[in-house]
Design a protein around this nucleic acid. Structure first.
Lengths: 255, 255
DNA sequence: GGAAAAATGTTAATTTTTTTCTGTTTCTCA
DNA sequence: TGAGAAACAGAAAAAAATTAACATTTTTCC
């Protein structure tokens, strides 16, 4: 009875985007406002909705209006990511042909990057926009269908053609991974994204992996690279020594 | 609901560029001016808008009028462009495959567009980002080197391959032109952009041209289409009747 | 059946939001 | 330049929403 009502409320809010307590009262005329209020409170605790004065809104709706969907992700471990991005930025030489992925760490790198002549290929809209502020950096955006969750393109047949193209050369791929375990390697959540990263790792002469310590032990569905595929690992101070040594044993530079 | 109202205000200002307190009052007839004023104050504190005497402006709009080259372009004739974008938006049917260019009018169209199931191809980063807010619109960004002046990609060999691809179909191309004369047709400043638009006009079953009256009589280096290449002309009220008739004589619908 | 727990309802106190009213500043244009 | 209009900001009062505390009902389980 209670659970039933609560899931109906959740469904309604999800569908309508928002709902005032008054409207909610019309849907459930036999329960008091206090009860509905309590229900909203429970739903908020579960993270299903966001309570606002006057009623509640769906999580999506709040994100849509009060901030980019991207932000939640970028907000976490900001300091570590900036630290890593700065390290990576200092490793970039002039006149290099670089691939950068669409992740939040890559966005920080785009900000921290020195304004030196080089060419950057990326599938991230935010990354590309950020890089356009640099006078000397030529930016090339890989096209394709857009993933709305993180504003990145995923390789269409054409961009695969392009990225696989023998006449376009990537010297350095700088990639951030959302997950790593020694057994499963570097993995990500979307198959098409994994395809792109795999191609890029293969195509690039050097691969730098940016991996903050929060990613360790996580596994996502699609592995796109393993430790032995990369050349430099860029990470933060909290990265465990034991794991660092595993990389070093494979002749990977750890920074 | 306060939260809801505030995000609606932010959205409106973002869409329209600027909004007077009076106009705002028309949108929210049930709240007092003082409350709206306070809302603007809050939004200003969050850095989402900039308050000016009589109302508020979007941050972008202020940046635009106060300097950058690209922006001047967008700031001028805003009302006409919104008018045209609204007309164009009302012409879009569900389940259409659409191409949209990277111009400022296209950006307004992206904002005004109904949230119906359809696929939009575009070479504009801002257009793509804006369209991502729509649940039902699938967005496909054409890749390529980025033009920093207007944050648009231009066709690389790969995207030409793609746009020329027989297996990707565009039903409707909605294009805005920076210049038109009867003699020189629709022209634009960059050769690569002209190449893309030309391909798109040819590829699309229908071409809608958005042309505000300020563009008449201007000539840019590269013509990408002529009057007879388009099917519908969408323009503002200030568009001269004589010119309208020239289009009508060629069986072009003028709106 | 009946006691304990869970769920709901009621009411008053509290907080937040909104309006109204006021005086001040800024702008307009003759 | 100055009178009048419009825009602005502050504070008190009113309205609405929220919380908290306690009463009541329903359910559960022995």
């Amino acid at each position: 009875m209670k659970r039933d009502r609560i899931s109906k409320i959740a469904e309604l809010i999800d569908k309508r985007g928002k709902l005032s307590l008054r409207q909610l009262g019309e849907y459930f005329p036999r329960v008091s406002q206090m009860t509905l209020r309590r229900d909203l409170f429970l739903l908020e605790e579960e993270g299903k909705i966001i309570r606002v004065r006057g009623g509640a809104m769906s999580v999506k709706d709040v994100q849509k209006t009060s901030g980019v969907p991207y932000t939640k992700k970028t907000a976490i471990y900001t300091d570590e990511k900036i630290e890593i991005a700065q390290k990576a930025g200092s490793l970039i030489d002039a006149n290099t042909s670089i691939f950068l992925d669409a992740g939040s760490t890559a966005l920080y790198l785009a900000k921290e990057m020195p304004d030196i002549p080089c060419t950057v290929f990326t599938n991230g809209l935010a990354v590309a926009t950020e890089l356009c502020k640099k006078q000397n950096v030529a930016v090339n955006l890989l096209g394709g269908p857009l993933l709305k969750e993180n504003l990145s393109t995923v390789p269409s047949p054409s961009s695969v053609y392009f990225t696989d193209n023998k006449d376009t050369n990537i010297e350095l791929a700088i990639i951030s991974s959302p997950a790593y375990t020694p057994e499963n390697g570097f993995s990500c959540a979307s198959q098409v994204e994994a395809d792109l990263l795999r191609i890029m790792c293969k195509k690039a002469k050097f691969t730098y992996m940016m991996l903050d310590s929060s990613k360790i032990g996580k596994i996502k569905p699609y592995t796109f690279a393993r430790a032995e595929d990369i050349h430099v690992l860029i990470t933060d101070d909290a990265f465990p020594e034991a794991l660092k040594n595993q990389f070093k044993e494979k002749n990977i530079v750890v920074m």
